[in-house]
Nucleic acid binder design. Structure first.
Lengths: 166, 166
DNA sequence: ATCCATGCAAACGCTTTGCACCAGG
DNA sequence: CCTGGTGCAAAGCGTTTGCATGGAT
């Protein structure tokens, strides 16, 4: 909605900020004097392949499909690195486990709809709500730095499936 | 909401839903065939004395000021019981620990402003935001069951204290 | 007498960390 | 080579649970 189209052709092949995540990470790593490794590649590729809001546990499982010997610790360390690089966003929903969501270059802040039936997570963005948030905060003397909004409910599919809730 | 006033005179002296939390818990306990105990009284009294959004750890500390021998397990069990009774609401902010907030009888749903400077937690309620939430959800085929909205920022006091953020 | 509640400590799930070894620059 | 990365296992943290004991009804 508020994302203005910058140029039309860049989407054709690569686009300045459309380099592969692995490549982007490479840049960050180089800039920080860190090192490159095979397991990081695997983890990062797998993470962006999944694309969604991945619990670390699930990511580990997927990574192990490619290389059984990559350790959980390395996955955690790599995800933390990705988060520091701004390539992944850690999310804390109520269930005690950290999920990571890919942070694509031009992406805006958004919030989440979470289906209590099937666990589906849908992203949305709403400027009106954000405006109201700022206003409410200001009326309490707060200056908002960030926020978290999660709506829990049943998605269309789940409602269709079991009309009279379980 | 679904609790209808059963008798009328009980409200005369104490107020139907204004009875002390310990007394209210007593009623629930009796109704469920559970038992009363000294440590529950201490925990519940302490909890409502604090009144805010208490991390369990802090509650335990306070409880221990009164009786060192009450165990952590009992505090957790009691808070879970209070939550089931509807007298306390468990809250999960992002910091990995559960906080409980007293649920007074007529209280509405509300959301939270959390100061990233001093940790202060302010409650607010905003119908417009809630309306918009419902609308957004519906536009995605969701039927909202509950939601969580947290605004993180700096409160007036903290901003006054250190204008140029640390 | 009967259950429930308690305390203790062990177990838990998720995440982090210490350490010795391995590997990229 | 030197520094950072890895695997493993242990530790950490908040929370829960099994079990024997103690207390309320």
């Amino acid at each position: 909605m508020s994302r203005q189209a910058q140029s039309q052709h860049e989407s054709s092949e690569a686009g300045a900020d459309q380099r592969s995540p692995v490549a982007l990470l490479g840049t960050f790593i180089a800039a920080r004097g860190l090192k490159h490794s095979r397991q990081r590649d695997v983890i990062v590729e797998t993470f962006f392949e999944i694309g969604g809001h991945v619990p670390v546990e699930a990511l580990v499982a997927r990574v192990h499909e490619r290389d059984r010997r990559i350790s959980v610790a390395t996955v955690y360390r790599t995800m933390k690195l990705l988060a520091e690089c701004g390539l992944a966003l850690p999310r804390q929903f109520g269930d005690g486990q950290t999920r990571y969501e890919p942070a694509t270059a031009g992406a805006h802040h958004h919030d989440h709809l979470i289906c209590t039936g099937c666990g589906a997570i849908v992203e949305f963005e709403n400027e009106d709500i954000e405006d109201l948030q700022l206003r409410v905060a200001r009326s309490h003397g707060f200056e908002v730095e960030s926020h978290k909004l999660e709506l829990y409910g049943r998605c269309a599919a789940c409602r269709a499936r079991g009309e009279g809730r379980s």
